[in-house]
Computed example of a mutant assay.
Amino acid sequence: MAMLLLLLLGAAAPPGGCSDPGPGLHSLRYFYTAVSEPSPGLPEFITVGYVDDQLIDHYDSERGSAEPRAEWMARSEGPEYWKRQAQISQGTQATYRADLNTLRGRYNQTGGFHTIQAMYGCELRGDGSIGGFYQDAYDGRDFISFDKDQETWVAADVGAQITKRKWDADRINTQQWKAYLEGTCIEWLGKYLEYGKETLQRREPPRVHVSDRPSREGLTTLSCRVHGFYPRSVAVVWLKKGVAVPQETLQWGVLPSGDGTYQTRATIEIDPSSETDYTCCVEHPSLAQDLRVPWGLKPNVMLIVGIVIGVLVLVAAIAGAVVFLRKKRDGYKAAAAHDGSASSGSNQGSDTCVKA
């Protein structure tokens, strides 16, 4: 179950360019999972809600109650709210139980373990616009989704066509979903952001580290690691001579760092012998303007060469000085020895002193 939820949470596509608004600045999402054969530790029905990537509430059919999972949710909402959330989940649980029987018959399945998953929610984007979505899956495969702009349902396979025709015909239900995603959901997201503003509305700027490594056939892979930022919304792209090249930039997705912040990485493969003017460009809500960190192969090489030459010159100078001093000292000793031998026959005291 945890893996299924992680797959759903990772469904958002990474941003494609430095000027791309990226994923939603803030989001409210709900995930429903129903199973045909529950077991201890795997309830028949589970509901979880998230604001951004923070778990805010949980319901499962074993407990039969909705519970807060964020301290600020427990502090801000009273018993009536949680009672209402439990009633909504219990009603959905009964609906999904019937839907599992319907879909088993539609796909000619006589028994076995089967699942229905749903995810829906809304988001406030970095550019001020809003978005919303609803999607169902059966046995881990796409089943049906909602196109709210066209106010129609989109079937993923032949088995879902029956559901599509039925739901398209129910115009009231379709309009209610559109109104929820564009209105009610956004309103509740605003409330939750206010409840948990100390956590959810904070700003932590990204830290950027640019590195390189040899690739294949003389090529070099440049890596731009961006980490320590919050909120999740970020855009990262490589610039070539100041121009974004998103088609050449490989995005690695935005992941939690485990400390309440996020991290991501963008790489690009280049020929360092032909062009080295590359810069990693990062946009984030915490930044007044985009952050640009250049990759400086040539300057670094020149610096290293300069340091090496400087060290060699210094070593040579020291060696020359040592040789000079040794020669000077040896010359003094030779002169002293010459003077001593000339006077040794007439000064026995000096000769005796030298031997002592």
Rank of each mutant, 00 (worst) to 15 (best):
W167D: 11
Q117M: 09
T279S: 00
S223N: 11
S286N: 03
F45E: 04
C122M: 01
V243M: 03
E187V: 06
R265L: 04
W252A: 10
E151G: 07
Y59F: 12
I172F: 04
I318K: 12
K328V: 04
D60R: 03
T249D: 00
R106H: 07
M119F: 05
I186F: 01
G121A: 02
S273N: 11
N300V: 05
R265W: 00
V315F: 12
S257T: 09
I268S: 02
N101L: 15
M73W: 09
F31K: 05
H114W: 13
P43N: 06
S89D: 05
G140K: 06
S129F: 02
W177I: 14
I309G: 09
Y81W: 13
R202C: 04
S89C: 10
L297M: 14
V311I: 13
H114Y: 12
V293L: 00
Y230S: 08
A155L: 03
N108K: 12
Y107S: 09
K328H: 12
A66P: 02
Q54F: 13
P231M: 06
V48W: 01
P23A: 13
I116R: 00
T152Q: 11
T95F: 10
K197A: 09
E182G: 07
T47D: 06
L100Q: 04
C280M: 00
L28H: 07
T92D: 12
Q176T: 12
L255G: 00
K328D: 10
A169F: 05
S211A: 09
T261P: 02
A317D: 11
G196L: 10
A66K: 03
D149W: 11
E187G: 10
C280N: 00
V210W: 00
T249P: 02
Q263L: 11
T174H: 04
T184Y: 04
V35R: 05
H58G: 08
D277C: 00
K333I: 14
R329G: 10
K166E: 14
N108C: 04
Y96L: 10
G78H: 09
Q93M: 14
E151T: 13
R84K: 14
V243Y: 03
T276K: 03
D339M: 14
W82Q: 09
W82P: 03
M1R: 08
R292M: 01
A137F: 09
D136E: 15
Q289S: 11
S274R: 14
V254P: 00
R326P: 00
V158A: 15
H209W: 07
H209C: 05
D351I: 11
K191F: 06
L189V: 04
E194Q: 13
H26P: 10
F31G: 06
V236N: 02
I162R: 14
P214V: 03
D142Y: 09
G242T: 01
Y107F: 12
Y30A: 11
G183Q: 07
S286E: 05
E71Q: 15
S257V: 06
L219S: 14
P43C: 06
L103G: 03
G296W: 00
Q135T: 04
L325E: 11
V210L: 00
R213H: 07
V35C: 06
Y59M: 08
L5P: 05
D52T: 08
D57G: 08
T249C: 01
I46E: 07
C353K: 14
G64H: 03
A11Y: 02
L100T: 10
L297Y: 04
G112Q: 05
Q54A: 06
Q251D: 03
N300Q: 13
R329N: 12
P299V: 02
D168E: 11
D53H: 13
R97F: 09
Y332N: 13
D52E: 03
Q87A: 14
